[in-house]
């Protein structure tokens, strides 16, 4: 179900990693023989190279001034390197006559819009599941797990058909072909994940603070707004940004739903640059576009890491 499939683990893992980062490290005490250390560093450098190889390739391609001409050799900084490809992507429309900024706007609206909407609805539900005991709670939680297990394309069919049957009042157009329709489909996958993720985070926060607040006369609503909300800010940010990142490059739903060229997203644009034959791929433009799509996400991801490290909830009670 979740288009978020690929990120569910991210928060948990990263939170865990960050926590460990803050606590005392266990490391073997001895430095070990020289030869062993040299080999270990060589291995690390090799891995570094393997990780960076595609990244360097794409950068070098983007800088290559011979756009359609085929790349026939590997050079880190190609002769006559220029930012022309970036300028072309940013200022000239693609072959399908849609400009970068149109796609950028579409992707931004649909991914940020849905992740923000989902967050608002998810946070109270997550709190309820984490803190209250009520009839039906177990079934609710079970339903979330079951829904998460559905692969991304599982409800593609029914969402397509259902949204297709709803017409925008006054026009002959169906909601399915609009960004709103796409957004609804995104919410469908993103909401169970957001609730699950936030619930998991709230579960790790000891109830002591809320209890203290309640002894002081605060009701559950106050406890939620004044105590929990500030404490889960990192989790809120993380959930928002993971939702955003998933929507930013979502392909399956967008490719199936959107038909009007003015509504295509970045993921669709990148995919459509991919010609049947290699000689048709505008290599530099393709590389530049990949970088432009990736950059915001990578920046966000690395900024996010600091948020994980904040780990506000831990330590606020333990001290």
């Amino acid at each position: 179900m979740a288009l978020e499939r690929n990120v569910i683990g991210r928060t948990v893992a990263a939170e865990r990693g960050a926590l460990a980062e803050r606590t005392e490290y266990h490391r073997p005490r001895q430095v070990g023989p020289l030869i062993e250390n040299v080999l270990a560093h060589l291995a690390l450098l090799l891995i570094l190279f393997a990780v960076l190889f595609p990244v360097l390739w794409i950068i070098s391609m983007a800088l290559d001034p011979r756009n359609i001409e085929r790349p026939t050799s590997l050079t880190l900084i190609p002769p006559g390197a220029s930012l022309a490809a970036f300028t072309r992507i940013l200022t000239e429309p693609l072959p399908n006559n849609v400009g970068f900024w149109t796609m950028f706007r579409n992707s931004l609206i649909v991914s940020l819009g849905t992740s923000a909407a989902v967050l608002v609805v998810a946070v109270t539900a997550a709190y309820s599941f984490a803190r209250f005991r009520f009839p039906g709670r177990k079934w609710g939680l079970f339903a979330f797990i079951a829904v998460q297990m559905l692969p991304g394309v599982a409800t593609l069919t029914s969402l397509f058909v259902l949204l297709n049957s709803i017409k925008i009042p006054g026009t002959n157009e169906s909601v399915r072909t609009t960004l709103l329709g796409l957004g609804i489909a995104y919410v469908s996958g993103a909401l169970p994940f957001a609730i699950w993720n936030l619930k998991g985070y709230i579960d790790t926060i000891p109830t002591d603070l809320e209890q203290a607040a309640m002894v002081d006369g605060a009701g559950p609503n106050r406890a939620f707004i004044d105590v929990i909300l500030p404490l889960i800010l990192p989790a809120l940010a993380v959930t928002l940004l993971l939702g955003f990142m998933a929507g930013w490059t979502e392909f399956v739903l967008a490719w199936t739903f959107i038909t009007d060229p003015s509504r295509i997203t970045l993921a669709m644009g990148l995919y459509s640059m991919q010609g049947e034959y290699a000689s048709q791929v505008p290599w530099s433009d393709f590389a530049a576009m990949s970088i432009l799509i990736t950059l915001p996400v990578v920046v966000v991801f690395f900024l996010l890491q600091r948020w994980f490290v904040a780990g506000l909830s831990v330590g606020s009670v333990k001290g």
Binding site: A267, A278, V297
Partner: peptide
């Protein structure tokens, strides 16, 4: 740097690698 592959959008990663496997011009 090691978490880089994780940070990149899988869609972009996949399309980039597809081009890297290109017979004539791939890296």
């Amino acid at each position: 740097i090691f978490i880089f592959p994780w940070a990149m959008p899988p869609l972009v990663v996949a399309i980039v690698w597809r081009n890297m496997f290109n017979r004539e011009f791939g890296a």
